[in-house]
């Protein structure tokens, strides 16, 4: 179980995150939701040990700041929003990087790893492009390749930092469905930053509403995503706006605008 206690992150004078507390149990998908600058990505970076923080982050009772990078990678995989690969590695090689923590310089065979790499490539629909140069992949294909890398890492916890914000709808659906299937298998947990409240409500089991680096509401998704709580955080009637957005706007075959 991931437990975050009194988490605080400051960039010089500016306190990006303060007094954040939450716990994430196996099988749960916790959504970090809030407006820009609320501190969502900062929390992901702190938990993944990519920046310095105050407070305590423990995984199964172990302080993760004390863990070696290899040990941490076996417990936690991270998928970022966008990626830039330096050289022309193939998709398969990129996915295999996910096994780095399991192989030492002297161990040659990682049978279990090979099976996981194959599974990840297959599950993420990358078989057709496994020998393709990653430099020529589309944004969606590259994100799927990195997701496969995270799956190959075989960690019980997955952190997602706005993983689909620059993807089209089809890729967004594929990515979230893949993560959902992965989570349900072996009761793994997911901590993610998502901008789309509806997506967060659909896929998340729990949510944390953030504003100005502080938690304003937390709990099961249906308890958190209420009209009042969302209005407090976003300063607008989110439900009304979403209803307006999703109102039928084409009248059958005529294509007449009806809003």
């Amino acid at each position: 179980m991931l437990r975050v206690q009194n988490l605080g992150v400051a960039y010089k004078e500016y306190e990006a995150v303060r007094d954040v507390n939450f716990a994430l149990c196996p099988g749960e998908w916790l959504m970090l939701v809030g407006p820009n600058g609320a501190g969502k990505s900062t929390i992901i970076k702190a938990v993944s040990q990519s920046l310095k923080y105050k407070g305590e982050v423990t995984l199964d009772g172990q302080d993760i700041s004390k863990l070696h990078a290899r040990q941490l990678a076996k417990k936690m995989a991270v998928l970022q929003q966008s990626h830039a690969v330096g050289y022309a590695f193939t998709v398969e090689q990129l996915v295999r990087f996910g096994r780095y923590a399991y192989k030492s310089a002297f161990s040659r065979v990682d049978t279990q790893g090979e099976r996981l790499v194959e599974e990840a490539i297959d599950v993420c629909g990358l078989s057709r492009i496994r020998h393709q140069n990653v430099l020529i992949l589309s944004g969606g294909e590259l994100q799927r390749a990195f997701l496969a890398q995270a799956f190959a890492q075989d960690a019980p916890l997955l952190l997602l930092d706005e993983p689909a914000s620059h993807l089209d709808m089809a890729y967004q659906q594929t990515l979230f469905e893949l993560v959902e299937t992965w989570r349900r298998h072996d009761k793994r947990s997911v901590l993610s930053v998502v901008h789309d409240v509806q997506m967060a409500r659909r896929y998340g089991t729990h949510a944390l509403l953030l504003k100005d680096g502080r938690v304003t509401a937390s709990g099961a998704v249906d308890d958190v995503f209420t009209r009042e709580k969302l209005q407090t955080v976003y300063g607008m009637d989110v439900n009304a706006w979403l209803s307006w957005l999703h109102a039928p706007w084409l009248d059958g075959q005529t294509g007449t605008h009806s809003v």
């Binding site: 290899r70 990678a73 690969v85 590695f89 890492q153």
Partner: peptide, 19 residues
């Protein structure tokens, strides 16, 4: 091996276990 993984950026390299 570490230099290979550096191709995906330092933060990603850290996330897959590179010191």
């Amino acid at each position: 091996r570490e230099l290979d993984v550096f191709a995906i950026g330092e933060e990603n390299a850290h996330n897959v276990g590179v010191s």
